[in-house]
Design a protein around this nucleic acid. Sequence first.
DNA 1: AGAATGTTTCGTTACTGGCCGAACTATTGA
DNA 2: TCAATAGTTCGGCCAGTAACGAAACATTCT
Lengths: 237, 237
Amino acid sequence: MSRIASGNTIAEAASLIGDAARANMLSALMGGQALTAGELARHAGVTAQTTSGHLGKLTEAQLITVEKQGRHRYYRLASPDVAQAIHALMAIAASGPKRYHPIGPKDEALRLARTCYDHMAGRLAVALVDALIGKSYVMLADGAGLVTDEGRRFFCDFGIDLGEVTRSRRPLCRTCLDWSERRPHLAGRLGAALLDRTLALGWISRTAESRALRIMRAGEAGFSNTFDLPPDWRKIT
Amino acid sequence: MSRIASGNTIAEAASLIGDAARANMLSALMGGQALTAGELARHAGVTAQTTSGHLGKLTEAQLITVEKQGRHRYYRLASPDVAQAIHALMAIAASGPKRYHPIGPKDEALRLARTCYDHMAGRLAVALVDALIGKSYVMLADGAGLVTDEGRRFFCDFGIDLGEVTRSRRPLCRTCLDWSERRPHLAGRLGAALLDRTLALGWISRTAESRALRIMRAGEAGFSNTFDLPPDWRKIT
DNA sequence: AGAATGTTTCGTTACTGGCCGAACTATTGA
DNA sequence: TCAATAGTTCGGCCAGTAACGAAACATTCT
């Protein structure tokens, strides 16, 4: 009865995500990087033909966008909204009925540090936000985040200018529930800037075929010193 | 490859929502009230048998919960996480490729004021949050919300005690993007409390078969006076 | 030019999953 | 006890769609 813009059309969006192959592709794109059709095919575990069809549908529905470059086609998530939706689905999938699910070594790397669309997630991200709160650089008043004046200065020193972004539509500091740690970590513009900056500093680096982040030697020291992480931050909480 | 807890299982969750009938049921449950199987069947526009099957699946996946009461079964969303996910899907569905979509009179009522899981949405909700920001009772610093000390006192006078909820897991003040207004409105505990309180005051009342809220005579005056709404708040922005 | 790689289109097949009719169980009320 | 209402289970029908092979198109490299 009360159909309006919701009812029917959310089903279309959801069923688009609700296919194993497409879900795998979208999950891969949650890494934040643009991927080619071939890479996505490998991620999804289906042939190139099948992938092409899927990507066509996702593009038409504006869940992803394409960019032609030579003989490659680079796909990426169309908007933070899409990332948000996939994220929310991850959350309810993780909290659903528990099922046998072995943890492999690759999983372990993902749990330690990975990208989540455009910011960090995993134990590193959770440890960072804890440290930032401890130093009163950010406040997570019941889940909503704000940067303090002290924090602004700190981030400025660290090479992240927050001054210009005050009046942006995009949340400066959002929280994002970590599906592996079940705790919030930093998202929003600040989260994205933090990822960019630490990548630029060479503290972390992206890995080839996975969303996992590698923590470099410079990062080991950098994170610990700059953010005062506790020595046992790698421990599972 | 990098399957972990995500890839596969988000597809299950999404495909569960990705059916027109089930999506309609879930949308109906976004009203926040528990509904019987029969009511949900009418919302979805399918027979009782079909509905039963759908509800079974949704329950098993823990997207909704059941409560037996006499010969009725009351269904409700299992958690705020689920509401969040559906909400996110509504957002991307609304921002997708535009399509012919007539606006009926019932839609108009929904756009004016409705429930969104456990808080208000629509033009009323947007007008309220604007007013609260104008009076410096809440701050929506780039999308993340905080209640000021002044605001705490105001809400306390209004009959909403925010003192006790300081250290709760649930965000006190979250924003939730309004799909009809395309602007944020109040969610979280504050949003929920505001809905409860104004319902208790008789300013608004739920309607029978829809998520629309009726604004009562007492509410007309109450909202305008207490929150200083502009006289033209019903106007489309 | 010819070969190799990346991607799409077409046509076919096979399967999943939604839907309903009919029959069955449970609760309430006369 | 019988009738009415709410909900579930079973079985069969049907449509939508994901999958792949084959072949075409596009781009780059040699």
